[in-house]
Simulated scan of single mutants.
Amino acid sequence: MFQGSIVALVTPMTDDGQVNYDSLRGLVEFHIENQTDALVAVGTTGESATLNHKEHGEVIRKVIEFANKRVPVIAGTGSNSTAEAIELSQQAQADGADACLLVTPYYNKPTQEGLYQHYKAIAEALEIPVILYNVPGRTACDMLPETVKRLSTIKNIVGIKEAWTDTQRIKDLACFASDDFVILSGDDATALDVVYAGGKGTISVTANVAPKMMHEMIAHGLAGRKAEAEELNQKLMGLHKNLFVESNPIPVKYAVHKLGLMGEGIRLPLLPLSEEHRGTVDKAMQQADINV
């Protein structure tokens, strides 16, 4: 269920920072039409850090409603409070999410044993699948492969989104990964390398802008069609890199706005993409044959 190109969906907003649910419906349709394999609602790219609890739950509910079981919906429900993560995850489960994506606790820097107990407690409070998410560059917390291996034995912990770009980390995870535990890339620029090292796909920022190409690239990679996969990856490499020219999701929200799918709204403390970087993102879209 959880493989291929999975989009880390942006949350469209009006100019004053309110969630635009009409545009959200359009984004869900855009991804289904363009073969995105699954949707992540309210991850980092969905501005989870600045949505309040009511909005957080409502965006997840609306994505589930709009998708209407046509593709899996993975709810971003991580927190640096275990109790809060359980609450968010149980609500997403009740609303019909197919899985929860849980980032490692940020800022409070738990030990490896603390990470294990955190995820164990959440998994045991749920019936739906749990996907771990390790992104040390954001959280100042690195979940080591040994901890992931321990967690992989818990029945409903089914995979990890790993944002380390070092393929050795992926190989270490692949040593114990099975058909029941999947490795997903958390970095578009190295997503194909993750697939080649044993991963099953990516949770992608680039897929917001080029969903069909991302789906095809990962499908070719998984099928061993390296030439076709590499050709698409080269076309997309400008997006992979330059959608991070400022903090995510600033550049990708600009790019999706350029596609005509939503306004420029974003929530403080983030601001719309600065003028000096707009040409860089425009050029990356052109290199990917995206005409706007």
Rank of each mutant, 00 (worst) to 15 (best):
T153A: 11
Q93I: 01
G96C: 00
Q112H: 10
G96F: 00
L222Q: 09
L270N: 07
I154H: 00
A255Q: 02
E55Y: 10
K235W: 07
R138H: 08
N34C: 02
P110R: 01
G137R: 06
T139V: 13
T82H: 06
E29G: 10
P269M: 13
G26N: 15
I128T: 00
A99C: 00
P249W: 02
E246S: 03
N242G: 01
A255T: 10
P12N: 02
A121L: 08
P251D: 04
A284N: 00
D282K: 00
G263N: 08
M285W: 01
N134E: 08
A189S: 10
N291Y: 14
K161L: 00
P12H: 02
H240W: 14
E127H: 06
N52M: 07
R150E: 13
L115Y: 07
D142H: 03
I60D: 01
L270C: 05
G114P: 03
V256P: 02
G199S: 11
A38Q: 04
K171E: 09
L261C: 06
L192I: 15
T165V: 13
Q35H: 15
H215F: 12
L101R: 05
K258N: 11
R225K: 15
S48F: 09
L39I: 06
L268A: 12
M213A: 09
E47L: 14
A140N: 14
Y107C: 13
L236R: 13
L115F: 12
S274E: 15
S247E: 13
M13D: 01
V205R: 05
D166K: 09
G265A: 06
V10Y: 07
S152P: 02
I74R: 06
T165K: 12
D187F: 09
A177R: 04
I250S: 12
S274Q: 15
D98H: 01
D166A: 11
V19D: 04
T77S: 01
D22I: 03
A125R: 05
N208P: 07
D193V: 13
G78D: 08
L173E: 13
P269R: 12
V245Q: 10
L239I: 05
T147H: 07
N242Y: 03
N134Q: 07
G221S: 11
E124T: 08
N20G: 03
M1D: 13
I250C: 10
Q90V: 08
E230D: 14
T190Y: 11
F244Y: 02
M1P: 10
D166R: 12
D188F: 04
Q234K: 13
I86A: 00
I6C: 10
A140R: 09
K120T: 14
G26H: 15
R267C: 04
V7T: 07
E276M: 09
Y21V: 12
Q286V: 04
A207M: 05
K171R: 15
V158E: 01
H53I: 15
D142E: 05
